[in-house]
């Protein structure tokens, strides 16, 4: 196991795409210390920012300790292995992740699991905006794998999602699953609304409160339960289909019990 300990408080962002099992594998501690990272506009060695230590056994794990909220791009394109982060972490964690696992015991920045293809990210704190969503301009959303967030998430989670699963135990911001094409999002808390804007297909389940449903969704029926990744979630749920501006067939499942203000939809049954 490789252990990285942050040496000092960081003031400017650090781009550390090299922290990945794929790159660390087969390297000595000395090699790892001399990997290149950008701190602001300066090139530094990883060893200048972290204390690097190797512990015998479990060759496929990287543990990182400290407040990493300025550090971006950890686990970029990683295909296997495990990263455990004890502390907060910055943007673009696990960008284009192809496999393996990333666990964060803390909060994270935005674009977690951006454009990921496979693998698993679990976050025990809260996250910023755009989780699983591609970076600016791109339409290549999350394609597979799963993201589990035990806290709250920001806006536009699951944007352009094309597959995979996102489970959020807490609450979400606006535009959950915007431009979604496939895949599933399960939110156990409440959402700030505008769910599934411009979605084409896929499934979004919200067990908590929702202020309103976009007018471009049609009310379909009431379901007593919904299956997410083989697990049965008890309802009942209002089911909506949309987004009709995109001729979409995406499905929204919104808890009936938590949203009495949506009762008026039942008239259209």
């Amino acid at each position: 196991m490789i252990i990285l300990r942050l040496k000092r408080t960081l003031k400017v962002p650090v781009e550390a795409r090299c922290i990945s099992q794929d790159i660390f594998e087969g390297k000595t501690v000395e090699d790892i210390r001399s990997l290149k990272v950008w701190e602001g506009n300066k090139v530094r060695k990883l060893g200048e920012i972290f204390e690097v230590e190797e512990k015998r056994g479990d060759n496929s794990t990287i543990r990182i300790l400290g407040d990493l909220s300025k550090i971006r791009g950890i686990g970029y394109q990683m295909t296997h292995g495990r990263i455990i982060i004890e502390g907060n972490v910055g943007h673009r964690l696990g960008e284009e992740l192809g496999g393996g696992e990333i666990i964060v015991h803390g909060d994270t920045g935005s674009w977690i699991g951006s454009s990921m293809k496979d693998g698993r990210i679990e976050i025990f704190g809260c996250t910023g905006d755009y989780i699983a969503a591609p970076y600016r301009g791109s339409m290549k959303g999350m394609r597979g794998g799963e993201i589990i967030v035990h806290g709250d998430v920001g806006d536009e989670a699951g944007g352009y999602m094309r597959g995979g699963l996102i489970v959020i135990d807490g609450c979400t911001g606006q535009f959950l699953g915007v431009h979604m094409k496939r895949g599933t999002i399960l939110v156990k808390g409440s959402s700030e609304g505008r769910i599934g804007a411009e979605m084409v297909n896929g499934k979004i389940v919200v067990c908590g409160q929702v202020p309103s449903i976009l007018p471009t969704f049609t009310f379909e029926d009431i379901k007593s339960s919904v299956k997410v990744d083989g697990e049965k979630i008890k309802g009942p749920f209002y089911r909506f289909i949309g987004d009709l501006t995109e001729n979409g067939e995406g499905k929204l499942y919104i808890s009936k019990a938590e949203n009495p203000h949506l009762k008026f939809y039942e008239r259209y049954l």
Binding site: P134, Y135, R136, G137, S138, M139
Partner: peptide, 8 residues
């Protein structure tokens, strides 16, 4: 302007 993804 339309394509930031082409830039980065």
């Amino acid at each position: 302007l339309l394509r930031p993804e082409d830039h980065y």
